[in-house]
Design a protein around this nucleic acid. Structure first.
Length: 598
RNA sequence: GCACCCGUAGCUCAGCUGGAUAGAGUGCUGCCCUCCGAAGGCAGAGGUCGAAGGUUCGAAUCCUUCCGGGUGCGCCA
């Protein structure tokens, strides 16, 4: 939602004062390892790519841990401990490092000086929601294609998850320094839009007082009634009692446009806006499909042949047919795939090839498609197409979105298009709100099924992750409000200049450590195209913050508002930092932060 | 038959592209409000990471083979 200026911002932040404590310490470790190499303690020319600086699993081990000694032991021909000891001595000389202990099989556990964490808080306040933005993407052009629902009706819940994941992923990638385009591929070239046209025509007849004949296979939904009315308004009675050949094309275009209008509205209600809408139909008759196929043919990947029937269960009506095929088996697919039907017309795969060719030609470095899990069989052939057409320059990552199971009162909400009981995206948003829909849809990895429990998501307890995170943010704002009422200056500038040496308790350090993980988390999530990690991170941050808050009940010195204004400001600086990161994270998820719970 | 995805605490799920004694929530047991919002927090119990092999300093994570569940498999997109 706030991604418009993202790529420019990332470039700006890139460089010197981009704060990422883990990255900084890794740089330090690498520098010291290089020094050890030039001193002859380590053999020269070691590959340091595998050296990682990570949060230790157990916080008791310290603030950060590096595996350097273990990954280098073998290539260096030395004992891990010997490397770790030598490295520890050098690292201790850095003012940020308070301790470096060798542990376990050769981990080097680092404890940082409180001042390092204080610097982090100052940085969060100085950079605001820019804290955590990354230059990882280096402005590379990435295209995220998602939703792409057929323009034949309103969006329903099955589309919602893909829409949310795609949009949050786009936000995430923009935040991580990619130049992102959100794109919707309109499937307006196939038989289903003819069905739409015929269905709408019946509603048009209905608008003229005739009784509609919704034959088997047509779309029965009420949402087409206004389309019928609009057709009447536009065409009067000129289409009545005419054969399909007189009206099909016009009605199809008109109805498709209205459906897309409705879908745009549905997306907007969910907070999604696309940068580009591409039309399948627009590929026909322009030579683009032919050109794409010819390009593949020139690589020897197109031929005429006959497919074997699938082993195991052969379809009843199977008969061998000669078709134009794409050699996707050359890329690991199970079988070659037809691009032309036996009558010579294109299969749905052909325009898809042209569409992906088009994306490659537009200069994208990376393509990401968000598909429903029922498209799993489609993945290999599309990847094959992209790598063939781009000479392996462009990568295609396909995220398959598993089903959403709706639960209400402990019961599964059965959805049937025919029975008209499917739940539309609008219904869902009207009932629980777009923020809840978005957050909950991001609390699972894309490739596992998701239960969406109406009762839980509207509940105000920590069962409900949306509420839990929002509550943390509300508490942050509550503190700021109280402080202002007490006449304290809590502007970010003032807080950033506070004497943060007042922060040092273990519970406070826990929160600071978690804040320190944010930029690292962004990069991990962006590298894997996994926006759900942001949701989980926010939950953890909220948890650490709630814990700190409650410590104040037992220990007065941990309360945020103290007698001494300077001490208060230091504490509030930390509180405010938590709010900044929560807002940044919610921004990526596309969820509106609430300042007060109601 | 083949391909892809999933299998982690009673239940719902995380798990950083191979790291340390596998973590949350929920449920169960016991605690914490004169208090910055208890709509919260703390502690305890609870595991053969579906199974068996393999790769190496080291595997829930990578490889192989099984078992169980889901999805898909030429003129629908």
């Amino acid at each position: 939602m706030t991604s418009a200026g993202a790529s420019g911002m990332a470039l700006e932040v890139r460089g010197c004062d981009q704060m990422n404590l883990f990255a900084d310490i890794r740089e330090l470790v690498v520098a010291e390892l290089q020094a050890l190499m030039s001193d002859g303690v380590l053999p020269a020319g070691l590959d340091l790519a595998g050296v990682a600086v990570e949060p230790p699993r157990d916080a008791g081990h310290g603030d950060m841990a590096t595996n350097a000694a273990m990954v280098l032991a073998k290539p260096a021909g030395l004992q891990p401990r010997a490397i770790a000891d030598a490295l520890a001595v050098r690292l201790m000389e850095d003012p940020r490092v308070a301790g470096a202990d060798v542990a376990g099989p050769g981990f080097l556990n680092l404890r940082l000086e409180p001042a390092a964490w204080h610097g982090l808080v100052r940085d969060v306040l100085a950079q605001g929601e820019g804290y955590g933005r990354s230059a990882l993407g280096q402005g590379r052009k990435v295209n995220v294609e998602f939703v792409s629902a057929n323009p034949t009706g309103p969006m329903h819940v099955a589309h919602a998850r893909g829409a949310v994941v795609g949009d949050a992923l786009a936000n995430l990638l923009a935040y991580a320094g990619f130049n992102v385009t959100r794109e919707y591929y309109i499937n307006d070239g196939g038989g289903q839009v003819d069905v739409l046209a015929r269905s709408a025509y019946e509603r048009y007849r209905e608008a003229h007082g005739l009784s509609p004949e919704i034959a088997e296979g047509l779309y029965p939904g009420d949402y087409l009634i206004p389309v019928g009315e609009a057709l009447k308004a536009k065409f009067g009675d000129s289409l009545l009692d005419k054969g399909e050949q007189y009206w099909l094309a016009d009605v199809r275009e008109f109805a498709t446009d209205m459906m897309m209008e409705m879908i745009r509205g549905d997306l907007a209600a969910l907070g999604v806006s696309m940068d580009v809408y591409s039309s399948e139909k627009a590929l026909y008759g322009t030579g683009q499909i032919e050109a794409a196929i010819e390009t593949l043919r020139s690589k020897g990947l197109i031929y005429t042949g006959t497919l074997e029937p699938p082993k195991g269960k052969t379809p009843e009506d199977w008969e061998p047919r000669e078709q134009t095929l794409f050699r996707s088996t050359a890329f690991g697919d199970d079988q070659d795939r037809p691009v032309q039907k036996s009558d010579g017309s294109w299969t749905y795969f052909a325009p898809d090839i042209a569409y992906h060719y088009n994306k490659v030609m537009r200069g994208f470095d990376e393509l990401i498609n968000i598909f429903g899990a029922d498209h799993s069989g489609y993945v290999k052939r599309l990847k094959a197409v992209v790598s063939a057409l781009s000479e392996n320059r462009v990568t295609l990552d396909i995220k398959l979105i598993q089903l959403v199971k709706l639960l209400k009162g402990g019961q599964i909400v059965k959805m049937s298009k025919r029975a008209g009981t499917f739940v539309t995206l609008r219904d869902l948003i009207d009932e629980v709100g777009a923020d809840v829909v978005r957050f909950v849809m991001l609390t699972r990895k894309n490739d596992v099924a998701l239960d969406f429990d109406f009762d839980k998501v509207t509940e105000q307890s920590k069962d409900n992750p949306v509420f839990y995170v929002q509550y943390a943010n509300a508490r942050v704002n509550s503190i700021l409000r109280k402080a202002r009422e007490a006449g304290l200056d809590v502007s970010d500038a003032t807080l950033g200049a506070a004497h943060l040496t007042h922060l040092g308790h273990a519970a406070e350090l826990d929160v600071m450590r978690k804040l320190g993980e944010w930029p690292r988390m962004v990069e991990i999530a962006a590298r894997g195209n996994e926006p759900h990690r942001v949701a989980f991170y926010l939950y953890e941050l909220a948890s650490d913050f709630h814990a700190l808050w409650n410590r104040g009940n037992d220990d007065d010195s941990l309360r945020f508002l103290q007698e001494d204004a300077g001490v208060s400001q230091a504490k509030i600086a930390l509180v405010r930092s938590v709010g900044v990161v929560i807002c940044a994270g919610l921004g990526i998820l596309g969820v509106t932060p609430v300042e007060e719970m109601r």
